[in-house]
Amino acid sequence: MKKVDKNKLGELMQAVLDAGKELIAPVRQGDHTAYARIKKPGDAALDILLTRMPLKEFFLPKTECLLKYTNLEGGGVEVSDPDPLNQERVVFGARPCDASSLPIMDKVFTWDYNDSLYLARRDKTTIVSIACESPAASCRCESVGISPSAKDGSDVLLTPIGDAYTVDAVTEKGEKLVALWGSKLSDASDADAAKAAAFKPALPGHQTDTASLRGKLKAKFETPAWAEQTMKCVGCGACAYLCPTCHCFDIVDEKSGCGGERRRNWDACAFSTFTLHGSGHNPRAEQQHRYRQRVMHKFDYYPEKFGPVACVGCGRCLSACPVGMDIFEIIEKVTADE
């Protein structure tokens, strides 16, 4: 195991840039925070506990072109595919929850079809996560079996040990990056490694035992508690769009002039139009049905198919919800015995 001084992270980022790779890091944009491409290490704001926007837009962009078409003069149509990403990228300063969302999305995008655009982005990107020293009241990672120093999804994990971080290469991609950093890192002692292993900050927020509650969801599909608990939902897509694991999309054709693009755009199950049929019938007629879908997809349907729950407990949906919905509170309430 290696380690690096806390004040030397800029050098690690510079090395990434010098190697011709794209660098993505948390940044401040006025009052707003997001992950963004940066050209110099100084633009990174690694002190942000959790950016408002998750990491997913670098793998599943909010809108992306799937094909381009042009109507040719004299008849016929020319169709072209977009090129998959061909640029090495490093995300520096992801949080373990955000990194954990990637294996969850991978399962969807490789399930019955290998999504080449998504997979190219995954393949070209190395994720360097930093374990969280002071989690916030909205942090819920332990509710879903993740911790502030979880390794899943990260290629390299930096764990704070006083004035330094231990540098843990989790994957082969991570090892390559650690090799690139070379002498910028020093060897960690056994004591450092022990400190890192013992790193376990307390989460100030209430944690829900979803592992035991989610088994009850299916039986509670028709409980009136859904209506009570979701009454206040106004049906916007903020929770889904800020969610690192929500991956639903809509495919639309946007025409311009004599051609156009077929696009994949983020979509959200909270919208009434999400399941609206052409006939006007809507199988999820009320907001309670849409919110129930959100909970069931994350905590029942997805785990049934793929194993883990489709939630990393980042808490963005709690803190950004216009009306203060708390998905964990709702799980507790709907699964409670009547």
Binding site: C236, W266, F271, P322
Partner: peptide
């Protein structure tokens, strides 16, 4: 350019009560 089209602005607005929004 930051807009993600979550429509939170519309959904919380008491005056945005159209059954079908022009944006849809």
């Amino acid at each position: 350019s930051k807009c993600i089209r979550c429509y939170a602005c519309r959904q919380v607005c008491p005056m945005c009560y159209c059954t079908q929004c022009i944006a849809q």
